[in-house]
Design a protein around this nucleic acid. Structure first.
Lengths: 237, 237
DNA sequence: CAGTGGTCTAGACCACCGG
DNA sequence: CGGTGGTCTAGACCACTGT
């Protein structure tokens, strides 16, 4: 047997995905087009149907097509655009950008949960929380002001924790397994301690990330991450 | 043969995924743990390795585990948290919240690309752009001020387009196949026409989504979507 | 080198749903 | 009803990488 010299490796699901994607993005298969069935594509590409299926599932997940049994796969008119943003630890984010990270605890206190927090976290009247504020610096300049509340009823260990050297985020990661998270992004006006710590003028626009974390149905922590002027959250897709 | 009355259907990849997830989220498999190999899990769950593989791939995609050949699957210490935000058409977003949507064109103009835009979009000195500004209302109240620039050199049809009744986003979706997008989120201070249209006081914090769209290596459009006070972008995961 | 994940295959059965 | 996607299987080969 003379082996096939041009030895084309098998068709991979990446090949199929790329081929289909390019037909969609170059307009060959415009919005509303029904794509050939998986069987037909498998034959056309010379591969198994499972391979086409995986390619198609990924394209569907990207939001470019809509799949339904019997009716087939249709190119979406208005792609469900979804952007993915990485939510790294602030220290990692700064290091990734080549900066030097520094952490500084500002304050800690244990107190009954204020009303607005009880609503957010679904706490009862008797629940106590630990309130931590801290600063994160990049290359010596203020980068983020962290304002965090931790449910001491659900997580009594927090009463023993010190956040002198280690930020509350790191402590929580070690203390609590994976959890459900609700994130909100917004623009707010700088006021109070925020101005002092971030060097904002009062009323200046602050980019804020608000995050509430739940574990097994209980709210564990609520945090406001307030960013220094000029901060942008970006992504490509 | 008496058929199995309790007829357990086969183990699906969802079953496997749920089982593994619960062991991770309840702390049974804490951060750093090396999970059993796919073969072992397949045997344990009584299913094919491909089924375990699919479950594991999805868990990996959620950012909970890290997989490497030979070394196996390890539970991440600091989960690469990635939040997915839906980026719907503003009209759809308002309708989804039960509001009434209204669109109003504010201005259009054709002009040479200003310097800052040439940088963003990679345009040459001679390139012309169409500048469109428009308002989006929810239940009659200002919701979003859109400030968009479209590359007329790459997309000459835009010169004939009217944005009286239809927003530029809708027009672009119909005119350009799927494209690559760069998104930035930020907080800025309200100024100029923004104040008038959104009802912000000058200097008030504005949540802005900036988006640049590319198609086949060419920048097609750059848009700033400025939101009315109180706007939040939220997601859960 | 050997173990782990990465992927493909050929075949099968099933669930859904449009005509 | 019949076609389409959804999924599982058993087996195989491969690519990477720790030891």
């Amino acid at each position: 047997m003379t082996p096939d010299v041009t030895a084309p490796s098998r068709t991979t699901y990446r090949d199929v995905r790329a081929a289909i994607l390019s037909r969609i993005t170059d307009g060959t298969w415009g919005a509303g087009t029904i794509l050939p069935s998986e069987m037909e594509l498998a034959e056309a590409f010379g591969c198994a149907r499972a391979t086409v299926n995986r390619a198609m599932r990924e394209i569907e997940e990207m939001g470019l097509v809509e799949r339904k049994r019997k009716s087939g796969t249709r190119v979406r008119a208005a792609p469900v655009r979804q952007a993915r943003f990485e939510i790294p630890l602030v220290g990692d984010e700064i290091a990734a950008n080549g900066g030097t990270y520094r952490y500084a605890l500002v304050s800690t206190a244990t107190l009954p949960a204020p009303d607005w927090l009880r609503g957010r976290m679904g706490l009862g009247a008797g629940d106590r929380v630990v309130h931590v504020t801290a600063m994160h610096y990049a290359d010596g300049a203020p980068h983020q002001f962290e304002d965090r509340w931790i449910n001491a009823t659900a997580l009594p260990e927090v009463l023993e924790a010190s956040f002198d050297k280690q930020g509350p985020t790191e402590w929580l990661i070690a203390a609590v397994p994976y959890s459900e998270v609700e994130i909100g992004l917004m623009a707010v006006a700088a006021e109070g301690p925020l101005c002092d710590h971030l060097g904002h003028a009062p009323g200046a626009p602050v980019f804020r990330v608000e995050r509430t974390t739940w574990w097994q149905g209980q709210a564990i922590t609520h945090v406001r991450l307030n960013h220094a002027p000029g901060y942008r959250m970006t992504t490509r897709y």
